[in-house]
Nucleic acid binder design. Structure first.
Lengths: 237, 237
DNA sequence: CGCCATTTTGAAGGTTTTCAATGTCAGTGG
DNA sequence: CCACTGACATTGAAAACCTTCAAAATGGCG
């Protein structure tokens, strides 16, 4: 009975990874079957609903996660409440890190999110026999660094119009919308777009209106947007 | 003769690391004596003079470096020449990465710099027998990511005045100036400060003038600066 | 001393923000 | 079914902040 039960749990774990939609892009993808078996046994999957907090700045860094479904916004706050979104994390992206003693930002679900969590301490134990997991985490971290630096250029040097154009192209890219007229859902509210682009909600709204008037984009119900003139948008960005 | 020569070279390499001023903070610090011996044999030290280019965007990523002396600015450019400094790298900091196929930014020496280089391919070979080097690189990369995200908040949400204050405090911190009235050299020209803070040179100059008039800072010849009212500066930032 | 790069300062202008009001839309209850 | 509500988005007008353009001042160095 006990034996059967253990076997059952292990099967479940392996099934979980085998059926995981991000198994080929998450940081765990480098593991072989043996490593994955051990690794999957360490994981806990959790579902968050819209606007739920996942990490809080200042709290002890106990868990890292891998996003399975949904989008997570990573943001920082100033004392007076001004907010800056420093990253949007999509499925396959790593949430948190295994280095810092505490979280240095907030993470919040945008819409429903499914996240696969690991204890930081257990990852480090695991790494003793599977050190390549460090390289895999490094790869993910390096991507985030590269994205962050691209965004520094945007925040520091681009105009509002250029920022909005870049934002739309980023979303098109993240949605793998390869058509000449990509169509996708904008997952952020106007205020969140503003907090991502370092603008006010009014400036965001005005620039969206301009793009719509100039027929560069079209917006349908439910925040669906179509990029009508992709090349023009690219040259603006 | 050959034997003697080989031994001489190995001694030189070990000496190099033993006398290295950043041996306790660079990413190579985790290596034991054996690892360090092999590692140091892979390294090449190079000296750059002021304004010399170290990396160029788009070039194949062949080398990573560890800064031994001096400061390096990492920056990105827009097509029309607008520039954004995305990082200032100090002694002990890692330059470049071992993941990307090519450099995605420019790196330029600020003043004279001494840098210890390693071939990316050789680091990866080395890691096969010393995988913990990945964790060490991860730690450095993670720091850079954290700094980049702090800077996103600054660029996106702070006023010019707050930016200048934050910049001064950053320099004080990097100079380990723990006095109540820290004093240090500003290594950047006004234009570079502007490119770091997402401002124009005139705005930077005006805000420096304001701080000087309000006796918050004092500036001496040779870009030496004293923070007179540290707490005020902190509350402004 | 004079040159050149750099910095500072002034005045005008523009972009973005702020403040305020209006508009839209989905959900709720009369 | 439609009015009401509250959250979110848009629009307008004025103000603020930062930039742009221009000129003067400073400072290092031959």
């Amino acid at each position: 009975m006990n034996q059967y039960n253990n076997h059952f749990i292990e099967s479940l774990n392996l099934d979980k990874c085998n059926s995981c939609p991000v198994s080929t892009i998450s940081f765990c993808t480098i593991l072989d079957e043996h490593g994955l078996e051990e690794f999957s046994a360490m994981s806990t999957t959790k579902i968050y609903s819209d606007s739920e907090l996942i990490f809080t700045e200042g709290k002890v860094n106990q868990y890292v996660g891998s996003i399975i479904e949904g989008i997570v916004k990573i943001y920082k706050l100033l004392d007076d409440g001004r907010q800056q979104i420093v990253s949007l994390a999509f499925p396959g992206d790593l949430l948190g890190n295994i280095i810092d003693p505490e979280y240095s930002y907030f993470a919040e679900a945008i819409g429903q999110c499914k996240i696969c969590f690991y204890q930081v301490s257990r990852i480090n134990n695991f790494a003793e026999s599977n050190p390549l997991i460090y390289r895999s985490i490094l790869t993910k971290t390096n991507e985030q660094l590269s994205d962050a630096r691209d965004w520094l250029l945007l925040l520091g040097r681009k105009s509002a119009k250029e920022k909005i154009a870049s934002f739309l192209l980023l979303l098109a890219d993240r949605n793998n919308a390869k058509s000449t007229q990509p169509r996708f859902k904008i997952p952020l509210k106007r205020q969140e777009i503003a907090d991502f682009l370092g603008l006010t909600i009014e400036t965001v709204s005005r620039n969206f209106s301009n793009f719509k008037n100039q027929q560069i984009i079209r917006e349908q119900v439910g925040h669906m947007v179509t990029i009508v003139d992709f090349n023009l948008l690219k040259s603006i960005s």
